[in-house]
């Protein structure tokens, strides 16, 4: 599904190298987690994959089902099936949440040569999916993320994911700012979307999200590289011993 090879990335403005040769392969239907200390490059990886400006790829490749991602515009990557759940979802005053979602869904359908969803079908779909995530009608009407609590913003990200039905979902620190109940709700939303044709890359600082979203593979990232890869037990090791031991071991 997602193949990253020897990815080197630096900040455009500061000439600071962030990613120093990332290799990662996420198979279809699997859930991979990336853990790592602050500043290891986890969020940069998610931004580079989704096409945010301000980063320069100096070496390496990233492909989604064989398509080169790095040459594409963010909207083209989205239409191919890539989705990033933001660590800090953006507030957009003046744009209704519903309008935003319908525009996004139809833009992707159009890009894939599909017909636009009728207003009725869209409404039916979004109401059902919003209900599962305990998102009420008021949240759908309000401007995108404006005045939403931390938990509401993250649930809104998952709602977008559910509506857009991407193939490759990247969750960037989705657990940050969530209490236990909110995290469970978000995790349930993600788990409901797990399927054979859909892969997840869960970026997190802590192990606790992985209690709810069970990963198949866990990677440890440090200083711009994946330094260790293992099964779910690796996450527990981090939880019990912190990153220091693992980093010392691979140093």
């Amino acid at each position: 599904m997602l193949e990253i090879k020897n990815l080197h990335v630096k900040l455009e403005e500061e000439d600071k190298v962030i990613l120093k040769g990332v290799d990662l392969s996420v198979e279809a239907g699997s859930v991979h987690a990336i853990m790592g200390p602050n500043g290891s490059g986890k969020s940069t990886l998610s931004y580079v994959l989704s096409g945010r400006e301000g980063y320069e790829v100096t070496d390496g490749t990233a492909t989604l089902e064989g398509e080169d991602l790095l040459d594409l515009e963010p909207e083209e990557r989205a239409a191919l099936g890539l989705f990033l759940a933001f660590q800090y979802p953006v507030e957009i005053p003046g744009v209704g949440n519903m309008t935003f979602l319908r525009t996004a869904v139809n833009a992707q359908r159009k890009a894939r040569g599909q017909e636009e969803l009728s207003a009725t079908d869209f409404l039916k779909d979004i109401r059902a999916k919003a209900k599962d995530l305990k998102i009420d009608a008021d949240m759908l009407k309000r401007p995108v993320n404006v005045g939403f609590s931390g938990g509401e913003k993250k649930r809104n990200e998952i709602l977008q994911m559910a509506m857009l039905e991407p193939k490759m979902c990247i969750l960037d620190e989705t657990d940050s700012g969530l209490d236990v109940d909110a995290m469970k709700l978000v995790a349930d939303g993600v788990n409901a979307l797990r399927s054979e044709g859909r892969s997840f890359l869960v970026i997190t600082h802590y192990q606790r999200l992985l209690d709810h979203i069970k990963p198949d593979v866990v990677h440890i990232m440090a200083d711009g590289r994946i330094v260790k890869t293992g099964g779910p037990e690796l996450a527990l090791e981090v939880e019990n011993n912190g990153y220091a031991d693992i980093l010392a071991e691979v140093a």
Binding site: S50, G51, R52, E53, E73, P74, E75, R77, A78, A79, F83, L84, F86, P89, V90, E91, I92, F100, T103, A104, A107, Q108, A111, Q160, L164
Partner: peptide, 11 residues
């Protein structure tokens, strides 16, 4: 905001 919209597929 522009990037957020584009990341959702809006040109």
């Amino acid at each position: 905001a522009l990037f957020y919209l584009r990341s959702r597929g809006v040109p």
